[in-house]
């Protein structure tokens, strides 16, 4: 594969917000925009999917963010879940942003480092010359990289989730529930999520397997803050995800 870093391409970042602290989201979007500004040959779009926040999420200082980036806001009238919000972002890209070559997903609660999006995109674009022709996905992995301030309970849940998901779908991934991912355009055309909740991460792997999409991992740093811990999925949700995975296999 060739290295197309000198060529021009378009990146869209899909971000789900649900009852978020506006200042924290603003700060993370600013960091993301600054980080991506370093990529001179890249056009950028940020698609902010408000998953039924009450009151609705409003960007206060969007001019700072949109200086070099096209910023879209999409709002679900009711809360559907993380999977449904991502699919809304993907569907919007499929329908209205035909120019997009790469799609990244990013959590705005401070867990993800903005620089890692750039690193993942660099790595993916080195691997794939034409993202419109090659179905490729690159997952961030906290277990290949670093993880800070994680609760021991959450660590065990993630390990169990990794074991079950790899066993269910025949992968050998180190981090299956990391929201930091990059997909080629061709991969996004295939990944049509039906799961509304966090089961989407497992369904995504099922679709990746089904459509023969290449999947690789790259080290990233995840930093749990008090805010992200309060916002993230609860450990007990793991049981619901496992139940949905089993039901999905028995009753497709």
């Amino acid at each position: 594969m060739t290295t197309p870093l000198s060529s021009h391409y378009h990146l869209a970042v899909v971000i789900r917000v649900f009852n978020e602290n506006q200042d924290i989201v603003q700060e993370n979007l600013r960091a993301l925009n600054e980080s991506l500004s370093g990529l001179k040959a890249v056009d950028k779009s940020i698609i902010l999917v408000d998953d039924g926040s009450l009151p609705p999420f409003e960007m206060k200082k969007c001019n700072e963010i949109v200086r070099h980036t096209s910023l879209w806001q999409i709002r679900h009238n009711i809360n559907l879940g993380a999977g449904a919000a991502l699919e809304t972002g993907f569907e919007f890209i499929r329908r209205h942003l035909p120019e997009v070559d790469w799609v990244a997903t990013f959590d705005p609660d401070g867990q993800h480092r903005a620089d890692d999006v750039k690193t993942l995109l660099d790595h993916a674009s080195q691997k794939v010359a034409n993202p419109r022709e090659t179905a490729f996905s690159l997952f961030g992995s906290r277990f290949l990289g670093e993880v800070e301030n994680i609760d021991p309970g959450r660590l065990w849940i993630l390990r169990l989730a990794r074991f079950f998901t790899n066993a269910f779908y025949g992968f050998n991934l180190t981090d299956v529930h990391n929201g930091l991912r990059v997909f080629s355009r061709k991969a996004i055309d295939h990944i049509r999520l039906r799961s509304a909740d966090f089961t989407y991460a497992s369904e995504m792997l099922h679709l990746i397997k089904l459509h023969g999409i290449t999947v690789e991992e790259h080290p990233v740093r995840i930093c749990y803050t008090d805010y992200s811990k309060s916002k993230g999925q609860k450990n007990l949700n793991a049981l619901s995800i496992l139940k949905n995975m089993i039901l999905g296999r028995i009753i497709p």
Binding site: V49, M59, C62, I65, V66, S70, L71, W72, Q73, I74, R75, H76, N77, I78, L80, A84, E87, T88, E91, F92, R95, H96
Partner: peptide, 12 residues
Amino acid sequence: VRELAIREARNL
């Protein structure tokens, strides 16, 4: 919900 959301998407 998705259809309505996409129809009402705003370019900021």
